[in-house]
Design a binder for these strands. Structure first.
Lengths: 194, 194, 194, 194
DNA sequence: AATGAATGAGCCTTCATTCAT
DNA sequence: AATGAATGAAGGCTCATTCAT
């Protein structure tokens, strides 16, 4: 039973710290020193492990993506019913691990960052494509292709919007409300003709 | 016919430039030098007129807010029919002046910035309250109070989500698609019971 | 009766303002803008009249020196008795016009400035020589040459020291106390042998 | 035998350099860059150790004060005779370490600086109180209280004046002359009645 | 006579990054 | 494995100074 390598542990600490600091600050222009301190080590060590500030950022983003992907996988596992699968995607999107205020903020920061940084854009595109594809596939079990497409686009946007609004203010919808609003949208579309 | 004051002109140039630079970069940590150069003047002059980088940022944010508010006012003017008013809000949200890629990006940057900066948060809260209130009022003409509330929350989130998604990639929904999705949501809710 | 020229008036305002600002700040590194504002005009006008910040500074110093010199002349005028002349020098040194807090501070600033700036050093040397010579001449009527020299050096230093100490704190000796201490020194030397 | 910490060493170098540069320039408005270069390091390192330009300045002032205090302590140690103690204070005031031209100039700069900077004023007040108190105590062994008070004030001012005059020009009284003038003052007061 | 517009230069400070230990 | 020492580069901001009006 190999104990987790020191290096792996350090890298994880740094990534966790990065999420926190980036999220709290709302910016990627965050001193590596701050991230390192929050992770309980010297900045030099952070550079030792990641080589670059950019690498820290990228690793952090990958971590966020990987967690979200895992959430999807966990939620979808074993469910075959289309409606259940859509619901699973929705719930995974608002999973506790994703809905922490700092995490949401960090997500948004990366979101914006991707406007300009090609690498970040590529990573986000993957997530986006996966979410959309998950939704589309499931929705095709409920609607005809055109409508499935449309509902998928709407649902994806709704999820993102709720996500964003949640982060901004305490008064933003909480997890359950967010899920309820998504399901409401889904039901309305189910009842609507065409 | 008094010509526009030099100062006013300069300030406007700077604000325009700030939107562009901030939007393109996806960050507020942008050298004033860059903003000033894009506005065709020296950094010193930018400081002369605004005193502070922070003031440049704030003025830029206020400008964005004012434009959006104006868009709402223009759209709502003279319409009394509830449905027409809801549609007006939706269309105003995706008005051309707001949907330019850099502008959207700048919006998001401020959005994220507001997580931490009290002043920015206050400004955004004003916009947010106004949008929500516009929606709620109009929707109360179409639904009972509880549902109006719910649809308003959903629609607001949907708008934000479409907005965000538009910014991220070329492939994001364009203006017409975005409006169509919002109207689709609205119609679905109209048809749905309760 | 020629009215004072506008230019002369402006220059005087600026010099007065410079004393105040320099004195209050305790530094020559004072924005010309501040001096100009206190003098009620735009910085550009200050440059128009003096050409240079350095010229403003120099003119200010000259003004201080001229005032002190005038004070000496006024005090010594018509007095021939050696003791009376010494007392006149002492009193002139602590004349009200010289003992204002900001003026004292400005004096000190120039004093220190003269450590490095040749021009300022030359100006101060003139003052210093004049004070010393005034004292020496008067004291030669009271003591033999060697002692006159010595007492002159002591008295001059005492005056400077009281001057300096006055500026630093409220608790510093006031004008009358300062004069009394100088006279006390003088009397003690009169009574002492040799 | 633990070698002196690098940090302590660097800080000392910087303080020494600051005295030199401030003294030579006659101003606190001195680029940190200049101080750092004279201390043989990069400006960034200076900030690393002191955090602030202000801290460099303050530390420099404290250093000067500490040295002077030490000089007093050294001079007074073991002397009980009142006259000897007064002489010790005088000599300490003109100790070689204090009488270096740049040091004197730096002292004056701080002196003037204290007119406006509360912190500096507080530090100087401490020194001033200590010098005065040393003098007063010793002089009470030679004169009645009222006269002791008076002589202390005069002697303190005389010391400051000689100090200042020394700094201004080469031709100023040298160390021995300064001491002689102080002792002369003291003797004259001893012989004078009352 | 007077001033607002405008800028280059310079200063304080921060930060990513390297290196010797 | 870990860190303190060290720095070059860059950014915010101020200021003396010039110029057109």
């Amino acid at each position: 039973m190999p104990r987790i390598g020191v290096e792996t542990e350090r890298r994880q600490s740094l990534v966790k710290a990065a999420i926190e600091v980036i999220g709290r600050t709302g910016s990627l222009d965050v001193p590596v020193k701050d991230i390192a301190r929050k992770a309980g080590m010297s900045p030099a060590l952070a550079f030792h492990y990641f080589g670059d500030k950019d690498e820290i950022i990228t690793a952090t983003m990958r971590h966020l993506l990987r967690e979200l992907t895992a959430e999807f996988a966990r939620g979808l596992a074993g469910r075959t019913d289309p409606l259940a699968r859509v619901e699973a995607v929705i719930e995974a999107s608002f999973a506790a691990s994703q809905f922490d205020r700092n995490t949401v903020a960090a997500w948004l920061v990366f979101y914006v960052h991707a406007f300009q940084a090609k690498g970040a854009a590529r990573l986000l595109a993957i997530y986006s494509a996966r979410l959309d594809s998950n939704l589309r596939h499931a929705l095709r079990g409920l609607f005809d292709d055109a409508k499935a497409e449309r509902v998928a686009a709407g649902l994806a946007a709704l999820i993102d919007g709720l996500y964003v609004r949640h982060a901004l203010r305490r008064s933003g919808p909480d997890r359950n409300r967010a899920i309820a609003l998504c399901l409401d949208y889904l039901q309305a579309q189910c009842r609507a003709p065409n």
